[in-house]
Design a protein around this nucleic acid. Structure first.
Lengths: 230, 230
DNA sequence: GCCAATAAAGGTTAATTAAGGTTAATGCTG
DNA sequence: CAGCATTAACCTTAATTAACCTTTATTGGC
């Protein structure tokens, strides 16, 4: 699937040039000129990265960046700006930006930096563990596809294991439902299927005997695998 | 423990200036001027990040970067260089660099970019700390989505938590209604919806049993989450 | 300056819609 | 046909909308 870039730029000429170049490079690009539309687009478009002009009418870029990061902490945001003073750059990073490019910039630099951010991010996404791990009173043996509770041992299927690992990989962070569906089935058409819910139910029933483990639903967002430590 | 920076620079004057500034900033800095020493230092010093000049005698920076990354794939490498052509920047990223700063640069920029790289790296690694907060007689467990009163525990939905956090984030400061709407729904079209009011009502009823907590309406402005401390 | 009349902002409650949960039945694929 | 994966049908609850009510501002005539 194409990498989705959300590009926020109010200046029409620059906006068009950059958009077209990035599209030629194979990015799935969405250009937004109005700051007020950004948060809405974020929810519907689900970009992999944001490129953000600082000087926008109405909203300023720093505030916008803060809002984006609050909503979606893992999303890289590259500032693209005419302001070349160091103080602006500092403000950009303070607002949660993950990179900062000064105008005039070459398209090549933008492309390289976008790819770099994506690479940094993907390398951080740790591969799913293949070792055993402790979950509350349970022990999960990844290699043997078993969930071992104090009283019984339960065999897991490949799908069950995959979903459980994704849920636990977040370290008490919310795993978006959408991400789960994409990672496990990699398909939009699954988005109205109830299959995932069936697995969630299975997992919940498996962990039922440990009150310290909870798989919380966050409606409209995703799931949170909670291990309540004492 | 201090953050360890391995700084590779052959030019003595620049090397000293930068080293001293970074040390003042609280970094544990190791300056290496000879490319041949880098890999050895890497093994003994175990830096958290590398800052690397491209133009070195004997070895070139790109090759060195490749070797560093091969040895230690998770280690961020910032290029610091006089070469300002895009082709050099591209080569830098291709060699595995994670950021690229052109000379002349301000020390502030270097510091910010170092911190940014470290932040990017650490952001997904650590589990989020349990950011609980005390609100009057209630305890709010953010990670568990619970509001714990002396008598009961109430589960909060994702929206309820989001709004409550925004309201309490201001430390007895006014949160503007339009900011709330923008942050939570990010859309102008919501500005005449009554949804927010419904949530405000829910929150008020949740805190009803504590007379020291008040969610004040400031008509035309916003809300004020008041905790009357003793 | 006082005080209705009116508008605007926000509150309340119930109904609606959409996201997700539950079970059981059906489809696959080795 | 055995065992997992998926779909279907129906249920539950969170999120939103709608309809109507209350309170606070604003304004224009006296």
């Amino acid at each position: 699937m194409k990498t989705k870039v959300l590009y926020i730029e109010d200046e029409p000429f620059l906006g068009r040039i950059v958009s077209e170049t990035l599209q030629q490079q194979g990015f799935d690009l969405r250009l937004v000129a109005d700051g007020a539309m950004v948060m809405k687009t974020l929810r519907s478009f689900h970009p992999d990265i944001c490129v953000l002009d600082i000087m926008l009418p109405n909203v300023d870029g720093y505030t916008l960046c803060r809002e984006i990061r609050a909503q979606n902490p893992g999303l890289p945001v590259i500032f693209l700006t005419a302001r070349s003073e160091t103080s602006d750059l500092v403000k950009g990073f303070e607002a949660g930006g993950t990179d900062y490019i000064k105008k005039p910039f070459s398209m090549e630099e933008l492309i390289v930096r976008i790819n770099n951010q994506l690479l940094l991010l993907s390398s951080l996404k740790k591969p799913l563990p293949d070792k055993d791990q402790q979950l509350g009173r349970y022990r999960l043996s990844v290699s043997r596809y078993e969930l071992i509770s104090p009283t019984t041992t339960h065999k897991l299927s490949a799908r069950e294991m995959e979903i459980l690992l994704l849920l636990t990989s977040g370290n008490n962070r919310v795993i978006e439902r959408r991400d789960l569906l994409l990672q496990v089935w990699g398909d939009d058409s699954f988005f109205n299927s109830r299959t995932l819910d069936v697995y969630v139910r299975k997992l919940r029933s498996l962990f039922a005997e440990d009150p310290d483990i909870e798989l919380v639903t966050l409606k409209g967002k995703g799931y949170l695998f909670l291990v309540k430590s004492t």
